[in-house]
Design a protein around this nucleic acid. Structure first.
Lengths: 258, 258
DNA sequence: CGTCATCTTGAGGAGTGTCAATAACTGTGG
DNA sequence: CCACAGTTATTGACACTCCTCAAGATGACG
């Protein structure tokens, strides 16, 4: 039996408000499994027996159509949960493929367990509701972005969120995964992404190879927010500005996203 | 006080599994409000005090960006719920505008009430979870469609779902709302939709004015499902086929969608 | 019979996808 | 340390889809 658990489990929104006892009881029902880069976690249509908490690395969620085209719906990072939407709605099988996009560690928990707990512990059910509600909101924002923004604006917006989510230094950071994966995530072709990265230099984003540097947050802001109707979305800009002002030279800020 | 309630309230998934007593207690806390075609229900950013159940008519949910561009995220019909995602996550305000797209009747209920009930009645919380989970799944399908299907395929797919959801006769029905609204819903321009409707005649869909007739479900199926990776999605085809086989001349089938 | 909203049709252009060739990077084994 | 193969990324030329702007057609309604 494991003696130490990843720190992400302590700040997990899913377990927020639960007592230390309940939390550890839940966690004891699962085990941590390592996955090599590129290793599949499960496939589309597989039976749904477990859900996962990403502890380390990154996980690609994707589907592929008959003609072999691959469509990435999300890339998860530590703290994210896989399959929590399938706790109640018993589908025929997994609605997407999941593959490790880096060497990763996932905590695997039986889904039946979570289902029972949600039935009895209203706190957990409400946490789930909050997570799903947030997910729906983000999906709606992304749909709007795809419909109203150019490829350049989508890429700029993506790089901002990437920087905030991973707590990178806005003045310079390395892309955490391949451009192929990023392009797929954004629903565009690799060639389009490659060309786009050269065009957004005019808007304060300097990309060379895997290195990204934000050189003018003001230029970025006016560029990205123009065609976006969601004022919430501009929170990323605020967070970036705060970061740059507060810690102009720190490479590993200590706080997590709010 | 009202003496009769719309029939949609009896089959509402949100209230599934609740006793008749609990259900009527919930419903007594709200009132039915009529809205004229085009009348706003609430605006983006408004404080969130109520949620709504669509009883009659249709409701357009949309946002508009600074440049005046309007983006419809959904069109709701009787049985759908507005604002159930905001029960827990207390946002600054409404995440979209809501406007009656026809003369409509909505049941208005205080959101605090639902919040309290969800805390105490785990059945209601689980129903909410199921609804949100379903919504997330649909959002993911639509995102994929926007990314991988041509305008023609999206229109064909939309018309199918329209027919199934509204329980229309596949062999001939009238569009329930304007083409302008449909185009906005599909994230395309009215001109593109207009042109597209003439092109999909080759694929078994005959549209003239507001009249739609499905003339070859097989042609439609091979056309729509080609670039779609979600096998669930083809359930619409199955339902259409059943409908045509079982009730070749019925105009008002008696059963609802599963 | 006008007036207004809705829809259709046309021509031109911006933005992406597609195909193909080249370049840069990564790891392996001699 | 270098040569090699395999993956990943860049760049160019071209086609196609969809958006934009503009003009006309259709339909609803007083």
């Amino acid at each position: 039996m494991q003696t130490h658990y990843p720190s992400v489990l302590r700040t997990l929104p899913l377990f927020a408000g639960l007592s230390e006892g309940e939390r550890s009881r839940l966690v004891l029902g699962g085990k941590i499994r390592p996955f090599k880069n590129g290793e599949p976690i499960f496939h589309y249509g597989d039976p749904i027996a477990h859900f996962y908490i990403v502890c380390e690395g990154a996980v690609q969620l994707f589907r592929e159509s008959a003609d072999g085209h691959e469509m990435t719906s999300d890339v998860l990072i530590p703290g994210d949960i896989i399959g929590e939407t399938d706790i109640l709605q018993p589908r025929k099988g997994r609605p997407f493929n999941a593959t490790a996009a880096k060497d990763s560690a996932l905590m695997e928990l039986p889904i039946s367990w979570l289902r029972e707990t949600a039935r009895q512990n209203s706190m957990l059910a409400l946490n789930l509701l909050a997570i799903l509600s947030q997910r729906t909101h983000i999906a709606s924002i992304e749909a709007e972005h795809k419909a109203t923004m150019t490829a350049a604006q989508q890429v700029a917006c993506f790089l901002e969120r990437l920087c905030v989510l991973h707590n990178f230094d806005p003045r310079g950071f390395e892309l955490p995964y391949s451009k192929t994966l990023i392009a797929s995530r954004l629903g565009m072709e690799l060639e389009t992404l490659s060309r786009t990265l050269n065009k957004i230099r005019d808007h304060g984003i300097n990309v060379k190879g895997t290195h990204v540097a934000f050189e003018s947050l003001d230029a970025m802001e006016s560029f990205v927010c123009d065609h976006c109707s969601i004022s919430d979305n501009c929170r990323e800009h605020e967070l970036l500005k705060e970061r740059i002002v507060e810690s102009p030279a720190s490479k590993t800020p200590s706080r997590k996203q709010a």
